[in-house]
């Protein structure tokens, strides 16, 4: 097996339409600077700067007093810079609590989703099993449906299912983190299964066969042979799912009615009114909301883009 040429450890590629992420970020080779190139650079640079305007101005205005920007406009030289807007936003928006709410939902959701998806992906891809395709179609299609389609029965069920008070303040599944975690797991699993089964399918079947001859149990094959080889895909998926779960707005808006208990993205729906007319405090609030996901993106950009191109079937 050691003579297999596939470098699975470095390339998270695996779907019919994906490419190793490294190729996306290939380094430019030296090309002489021609006038056409200059025009191209000017065009791309201008557009790129324009593209950054909403974020850069959010950041910039978040340090400036509202009185100043309302008088001179967003695009003006600063007279005074400070953290007052952040203090105000923190005070009104309780972002520390919201980060905590987010973590309580995000971490279990992320771990469970990827774990469960890897189980079914393993089962479906490693064994030519009768309903293999049926199950994958079921999972993938389920992942593509709009959430609004199934929300009413879910909501009506969740508000009738009791939970002990220790698990839910509302003593119902509705209004608890458990429900939101369950929703993320049920929904996101589709995409992860799609990606992981594509990936695992490319791992040579001989791996399993050899293991079976050695008498390794199914679980051993999954946990000690296949999962380690799947690591690049898992990394890419974890990064991507982090962003998607972090960015979820709908589920927590519907299933967590208490604004204070919502994760940060859903809490946006009641943040607007907290700040009303002060655009710069709103800017500071926006920065609080986007910092975690941007930090993860910049730190793990490679995995991010790999994940996206890897399974690119998802909006």
């Amino acid at each position: 097996m050691s003579d297999m040429k596939f470098d699975f450890d470095t390339s998270p590629s695996g779907s019919a339409f994906s490419e190793p992420s490294d190729n996306v970020h290939f380094e430019a080779t030296k090309t002489p600077l021609r006038p056409a190139r200059v025009v191209l650079h000017v065009f791309l640079a201008s557009l790129g700067i324009l593209w950054m305007v909403p974020l850069v101005i959010s950041l910039y205005s978040s340090f400036r007093p509202f009185a100043e920007t309302s008088r001179k406009g967003f695009l003006s030289a600063p007279e005074s810079l400070g953290l007052a807007n952040y203090r105000e936003a923190l005070d009104r928006g309780d972002f520390i609590d919201k980060y905590w709410n987010t973590a309580l939902i995000l971490i279990p959701s992320l771990v469970l989703t990827i774990f469960l998806a890897s189980l079914i992906a393993f089962a479906a891809s490693r064994y030519s099993w009768r309903f293999n395709i049926f199950f994958l179609v079921l999972f993938t299609a389920g992942n593509l449906l709009p959430q609004q389609i199934m929300v009413a029965p879910l909501f009506q069920a969740a508000r009738r299912i009791p939970l002990p008070e220790i698990m839910s303040n509302s003593e119902k599944l509705n209004g608890s983190n458990w429900m939101i975690i369950l929703l993320h797991v049920g929904f996101q699993m589709g995409f992860c299964t799609f990606v992981l089964s594509n990936y695992m399918k490319l791992l040579p079947k001989e791996l399993n066969e050899a293991a079976m001859v050695d008498g390794a149990s199914l679980w051993t094959q999954y946990w000690t042979i296949i999962m380690p080889l799947t690591r690049p895909a898992l990394a890419a998926l974890a990064t991507l799912e982090f962003a998607w779960i972090y960015n979820d707005f709908f589920w927590a808006v519907i299933f967590e009615q208490r604004g204070d208990d919502r994760p940060i993205t859903s809490a946006l729906s009641n943040l607007g009114g907290e700040f009303v007319t002060d655009t710069n405090v709103v800017s500071a609030a926006s920065i609080f909301v986007i910092i975690p996901v941007l930090a993860v993106y910049f730190a793990l950009q490679k995995h991010f883009i790999a994940g996206l191109t890897l399974g690119a079937n998802k909006g």
Binding site: M52, S58, D248, S266, L268, V293
Partner: peptide, 18 residues
């Protein structure tokens, strides 16, 4: 690519403001 990692909810929030 940077805006792609943001949720559309926060995109709305930022655009409404800025």
């Amino acid at each position: 690519y940077t805006p792609v990692v943001l949720s559309l909810a926060v995109v709305g929030f930022i655009w409404q403001n800025i």
